[in-house]
């Protein structure tokens, strides 16, 4: 059999899990590098994804929550299905498969000079975090930053050290955290993200809003933003669908003629208006 010389986008590279961190009871962060700790297999821009695989079981498309250059790729993964169940069992040192980077990523250049409003729910903070941290890294390129984030409970809030310690200390940055139901020890805001957003009513002037979370939250957030005067070019969201190939071939993640894995996952609301409402 002739050995093929072409690029093999569907064949993963092997990486090593260097560290695992519990974020919430059902979300863990996995820090990966080339085996033996020699650099990264590829670079991932903010908002891009990669196919993460516990090879004997399956592959899942996961948004890369942060790339620390030369240091690690970080994936925050919620336990929801077969593959992610298995991943949650592994220990540091485990080799896993990785292929990517996939998707368009956030328009970090186009947003320069703007005030940024990030609105996330649950694991939806994971993709936004790559953009948030990018803004902090290039702090002078962006204006004021507001982050509104909510989860079901305090325990379910991801990246707590950053939410409560690191991010609020950043220049011109405000972080607003809410949980769905009151808890005894919780002194902060209680309520759903969309209504908290309306309460805070951040000005739309010169601002780009970026949102990610469960579909129901996104729906209400988009409505709230519209009410608050954000136009469709000021709102960015990320979509999610079942994926298998990650390179726009296997068919299932289409919305209209767009493939989320390839043409997304990041869309301006203006682009979504042209697509069937199937997400």
């Amino acid at each position: 059999m002739h050995k093929c010389e072409c690029e093999q986008p569907l064949v993963p590279v092997i990486v090593e899990v260097m560290d695992i961190k519990d974020e919430t009871p059902d979300i863990k962060s996995f820090f990966v590098k080339n085996p033996g700790g020699n650099g990264l297999p590829f670079n991932v821009a903010p908002g891009q994804c990669a196919m993460v695989s516990y090879l004997p079981v399956g592959e899942s498309m996961i948004s890369c929550t942060w790339q620390e250059e030369q240091e690690y790729l970080q994936f925050a993964i919620k336990r929801v299905g077969l593959m992610t169940d298995e991943l949650h069992q592994i220990e540091v040192g485990q080799k896993i498969g990785l292929r990517g980077p996939y998707g368009n990523g956030f328009p970090v250049e186009a947003c320069k000079g703007k005030d940024m409003l990030f609105i996330a729910g649950g694991i939806g903070l994971a993709p936004l975090r790559s953009f948030i941290k990018y803004c902090f890294k290039h702090r002078e390129d962006y204006g004021k930053i507001k982050i509104i984030y909510g989860s079901r409970s305090y325990a379910d809030l991801c990246f707590k050290d950053e939410l409560f310690e690191l991010w609020p200390q950043q220049k011109d940055t405000e972080v607003f955290v809410t949980i769905d139901n009151a808890e005894e020890a919780w002194k902060g805001h209680v309520g759903f993200v969309p209504s908290y957003l309306e309460e805070l009513n951040p000005s739309s002037a010169g601002t780009i809003a970026v949102t990610c979370g469960p579909p129901i939250m996104i729906n209400f957030v988009l409505k709230a933003l519209e009410k608050m005067g954000y136009n469709d070019e000021q709102v960015i969201t990320t979509l999610e669908m079942r994926m298998k190939c990650g390179i726009g071939k296997c068919g299932r993640c289409n919305i209209g003629s767009e493939y989320i894995c390839l043409d997304g996952p990041v869309f301006y609301l203006a682009q979504l208006r042209d697509l069937p409402q199937e997400y």
């Binding site: 059999m1 002739h2 050995k3 093929c4 072409c6 093999q8 569907l10 064949v11 993963p12 092997i14 090879l55 004997p56 592994i90 220990e91 040192g93 485990q94 080799k95 896993i96 498969g97």
Partner: peptide, 22 residues
């Protein structure tokens, strides 16, 4: 078939890919 998978403890190997250009 796309590629082989072999697991030994924490190690995982992809020894072969099965592109067929006959």
């Amino acid at each position: 078939r796309m590629y082989s998978i072999k697991q030994e403890g924490q190690e995982i190997k992809i020894d072969k890919t099965f592109e067929d250009s006959s």
